[in-house]
């Protein structure tokens, strides 16, 4: 593995305790140029994770708390008339950053939500007949509270597709909990680590992920997985080709994190649950179990 990434993971592990897999997935998501949706209850460390990720990688970090009176302009930015210069001057919104934490995204109105989601896809902001590129890398971490649905606007499926992964953090294990409790007595907030990287290096890493090899049998495996979700009427809709491409990209990133320059079926299996869980809805209304899909599809 690239030493930067190992260091970053070590440092992140010191901040978000006992969540190695989630940290890896977050990092893989960033390396695969995807966006991350974290679904969990409040106070579990979502913000800490986002902030730590940005800081460790030396990226710019901003945060938007979504509420139902949040307007697109509050996210993207607005043009304000400057009387002195007699022109409209654009005031960039919080979206102009490397890592954006969109907290409780389901509390925003659909209008604002779509404004953000569009930007996530386009990586640029089009306002007032001008297009402004976002800084690269651009990585959105959105959180939503899955249980508390009152007064929320749940993201429609088509927009969930914009997120490469959906993960949940869950409670820390007992040891981590103990350490966490001790720590909060001391300082209340964890001290954020030093940056070990910068935006340029992250872009370079993203570039290198693209060159991770995928062999024919591996692509056949991905195809079989996609095919399995589409046939047999198990799901309302099967995984889309875009989801398939995303799966390959994510697997590459995971393999890269594992220090390999080629993808193994295990890489696909590692990222598949986070990738497929929010994209599939079972036909009979029961929950989707991505692990069951993995068990059902043989590796060619």
């Amino acid at each position: 593995m690239v030493s930067t990434l190992r260091q970053a993971l070590d440092l992140l592990g010191g901040v978000v305790l006992g969540k190695d897999t989630q940290l890896r997935l977050s990092l893989a998501c960033l390396l695969a140029r995807g966006h991350l949706l974290i679904e969990d209850i409040p106070g579990i460390g979502k913000t800490t994770l986002a902030k730590a990720l940005a800081v460790v990688l030396g990226l710019e970090f901003k945060r938007v708390q979504f509420t139902n009176d949040l307007l697109p302009g509050d996210v993207l930015g607005v043009s304000v008339f400057d009387a002195a210069q007699s022109t409209f001057v654009f005031h960039p919104g919080p979206v102009f950053t490397n890592v954006l934490l969109a907290d409780e995204i389901n509390r925003g109105t659909p209008r604002t939500q779509s404004a953000l989601l569009e930007v996530m896809e386009e990586q640029q902001v089009s306002l007032d007949n001008s297009t402004r590129l976002l800084p690269r890398p651009f990585f959105v971490l959105a959180t939503q509270n899955a249980l508390d649905q009152a007064g929320t606007y749940p993201l429609p499926e088509s927009q969930l597709d914009r997120f490469l992964f959906r993960i949940s953090l869950g409670y820390p294990d007992l040891d981590s909990e103990l350490e966490l409790l001790g720590r909060s007595q001391n300082a209340g907030r964890p001290t954020l680590p030093e940056a070990v990287s910068n935006a340029g290096e992250v872009l370079d890493l993203q570039e290198r992920v693209d060159h991770v090899r995928t062999s024919g049998p591996l692509l056949r495996y991905v195809r079989d997985l996609l095919d399995w979700t589409r046939t047999g009427g198990r799901f309302v809709n099967g995984l889309s080709p875009r989801a398939g491409q995303a799966l390959v990209r994510a697997s590459r990133a995971w393999a890269f994190l594992e220090g390999r320059d080629f993808v193994l079926p295990e890489d696909v299996q590692a990222v598949f649950p986070s990738l497929a869980g929010h994209r599939l809805r079972s036909a009979d209304g029961s929950g989707v179990d991505p692990a069951a899909i993995l068990d059902a599809v043989p590796i060619p």
């Binding site: 193994l264 079926p265 295990e266 068990d295």
Partner: peptide
């Protein structure tokens, strides 16, 4: 080998 078991696993 389980059908869905990757080589490293």
């Amino acid at each position: 080998r389980k059908p869905a078991e990757g080589p490293h696993d």
